[in-house]
């Protein structure tokens, strides 16, 4: 494996045009822990060096940033303008949008797909293209930029992203209720969800210590205070977790579950294992062994919940889980062939 670290999109375009062979695009490298090292003949392209904020229009609540920009740097740049990128996730901005591991932080909340206004990208042969616009609304042209979300670097390299920003709330408070039974945690969750203005972020974490409910209430100061009081919540330090520890032994199953299916998932995860469910629907479970994963996958199938193995020490078990619709599979393959006909991006 060789590594290449371009300093600009133009440099990357030239390098790709020279047809170097198969390529893995890497942001901050957080995905490597899950998918393992690439094959020996694959070049690793480290995008962290393409990392400027090209434009930050505070009045229009939009910005354009390079793919390698660390999320933390963007957050720091937005803070003085009273703005935020209101979706969870870290690493580089390009990596966050290409992997979209978390979706939204709460039901109906903002996810990377709803914040991505456009991209400047490179096809595997180095051809530069644009999709979308820099303004908050545009339906001109097909949304090739939306295909970035969840593509995991296997369709094209997005070198610049145009993003929608939101004003930071006037006040916010994190809360964490732990040591709850599954039933109590779900009941508390249901009460929060029933609010016309629910928490801005909320997650349920279940491990051998019991269930914990973590969330963020945002809005005007009186509203935030009122919601905390009404739901018997105390303000606490932020205990939000994006992912379960990547080095957990055994297997990790990830999926997408509606709220009413979460009780069933809790029941299918052994008490010693860990389940993390984000209010936007995504979940992860760290399970001790393949048998426990298979039990969870079976429960998920019965609940009509999408779930699959995303990390395992047995390569043959990776991606085991809910069948993906055959029509969607066919379309995904056709899109890969259309945009990367030689299968350069792996």
């Amino acid at each position: 494996m060789s590594a290449f670290a371009p300093r600009s999109a133009a440099e990357l375009a030239d390098w790709l045009a020279a047809r170097p062979g198969r390529v893995r695009l890497v942001g901050s490298g957080s995905r490597a822990a899950r998918v393992g090292a690439p094959a020996a003949d694959v070049h690793e392209v480290r995008l962290a060096g393409i990392a400027t904020i090209d434009r930050l229009d505070a009045a229009d609540q939009t910005c354009s940033v390079d793919c390698g920009l660390p999320r933390a740097e963007l957050d720091a740049a937005l803070q003085p303008h009273g703005l935020e990128l209101p979706c969870p996730g870290g690493g580089t901005i390009g990596g966050l949008f290409a992997a979209d591991p978390l979706g939204a932080a709460a039901h109906g909340g903002q996810s990377p797909r709803s914040l991505l206004l456009g991209v400047e990208g490179l096809l595997a042969d180095g051809t530069a293209f644009r999709s979308g616009a820099r303004v908050v609304k545009s339906v001109a042209g097909f949304d090739v930029h939306k295909l970035l979300v969840g593509s995991e670097g296997r369709l094209y390299a997005a070198t610049r992203l145009h993003l929608r920003l939101k004003p930071r709330p006037r006040a916010e408070a994190w809360f964490c209720r732990d040591g709850l039974s599954d039933a109590d945690a779900l009941a508390a969750f249901a009460r929060l969800r029933a609010e016309p203005v629910g928490p801005a972020a909320v997650q349920l974490r279940r491990d051998r210590h019991g269930c914990a409910l973590v969330g963020r209430i945002a809005g005007r100061a009186a509203f935030v205070r009122g919601q905390l009081a009404q739901h018997g919540l105390a303000e606490a330090a932020c205990a939000w977790t994006d992912h379960l520890a990547a080095d957990a032994p055994g297997e990790v199953v990830a999926g997408l579950a509606r709220f009413t299916a979460v009780a069933g998932l809790c029941a299918a995860v052994p008490a010693a294992a860990t389940l993390l469910w984000h209010g936007g629907g995504r979940f992860e479970a760290a399970l001790p062994d393949a048998a426990a994963s298979d039990a969870l996958l079976a429960a998920a199938a019965a609940l009509g919940v999408h779930a699959r193995v995303v990390a395992t020490t047995h390569p043959a078990r990776r991606d085991r889980g809910s069948p993906i619709d055959p029509g969607a599979t066919r379309l995904a393959a056709a899109l890969r062939t259309a945009l990367d006909p030689h299968g350069i991006f792996v």
């Binding site: 939306k146 969840g150 593509s151 999926g255 995504r282 999408h306 993906i324 995904a332 899109l335």
Partner: peptide
């Protein structure tokens, strides 16, 4: 449960 299950392209998008 949501427009893009993990591991699937955003075809709906």
């Amino acid at each position: 449960g949501g427009p893009r299950p993990p591991g699937v392209l955003d075809l709906l998008g």
